Amino acid sequence: MTYQLNPATSLGIVKLKVSDIKRSIAFYEQVIGLKAIHTTDAAASLTANGADVLLELEQTSKPYSGSHRGHTGLYHFALLVPSRRALGNILKHFVDLKVAVGQADHMVSEALYLSDPDQNGIEIYRDRPRSEWAYDAHDRVKMATDPIDWEGILAEADQGPFQGLDRGTVVGHVHLHVADLNTAYQYYCELLGFSLESDWSANGALFVAAGRYHHHLGLNIWNGRGGTPLPPHATGIEYYTIKLANADELDTIVERLTKAGYAVHKNEAGYYTKDPFGIGIQLQ
Rank of each mutant, 00 (worst) to 15 (best):
H173R: 06
S195R: 14
V208I: 15
G204Q: 10
V171T: 03
G164F: 08
A202W: 02
D199Y: 10
G211W: 14
N182P: 02
A157L: 11
A210G: 12
E156N: 12
G160R: 07
A209Y: 04
V208H: 11
L176D: 04
W200E: 06
V208N: 05
E156P: 00
I153R: 09
L191R: 04
G218A: 06
H216I: 13
P161V: 10
V174Y: 01
G168E: 01
F194Q: 03
V174L: 00
V170Y: 05
R167H: 11
T169D: 01
L176T: 04
I221R: 09
N220V: 06
H173E: 14
W222A: 02
G224V: 05
Y213P: 00
A210P: 10
G224I: 09
F194A: 00
S201D: 08
L176H: 00
E151K: 13
S201W: 04
A209G: 13
Q186W: 04
D158Q: 14
V174Q: 05
D180G: 09
W200L: 14
F194K: 00
S198Y: 11
N182Q: 13
L165H: 06
D158R: 04
Y188P: 14
D180Q: 11
R167S: 15
L219I: 15
L154F: 11
E156D: 13
H175N: 12
L192R: 01
N220L: 13
F162A: 01
P161F: 12
V174T: 12
G160V: 04
L191A: 02
L181Y: 07
V171Q: 00
H177N: 08
E156Q: 15
G168Y: 06
V208M: 09
Q186C: 05
D199N: 15
C189T: 13
H177T: 01
D180R: 09
H215Q: 12
W222E: 09
L165Q: 01
D199K: 06
L206C: 01
E151C: 03
H215I: 04
A179C: 11
E197L: 15
S198D: 03
G172F: 11
G193F: 00
P161C: 08
G172Y: 02
L181S: 14
N220P: 12
L192N: 00
R212K: 13
I153E: 01
E151Q: 14
D199C: 05
A157G: 07
I221D: 09
L191Y: 02
G211N: 08
L181Q: 09
W200T: 07
H175I: 10
F207A: 13
H175F: 13
G172E: 05
L196R: 00
L219W: 01
G218K: 07
A205E: 08
G168A: 08
H214Y: 09
L196D: 03
A205M: 05
Y187R: 03
G224M: 09
E156R: 14
I153T: 13
A205G: 08
G152D: 08
S201G: 10
G172I: 11
V174F: 02
A205H: 01
H215P: 09
Y187D: 06
H214Q: 09
G152K: 01
Q159V: 05
L154A: 14
F194P: 09
L196E: 07
G168V: 02
L196A: 02
L192P: 02
N223Q: 14
L165W: 04
H214M: 03
Y213H: 11
G172R: 11
S201P: 12
D166W: 03
A202H: 14
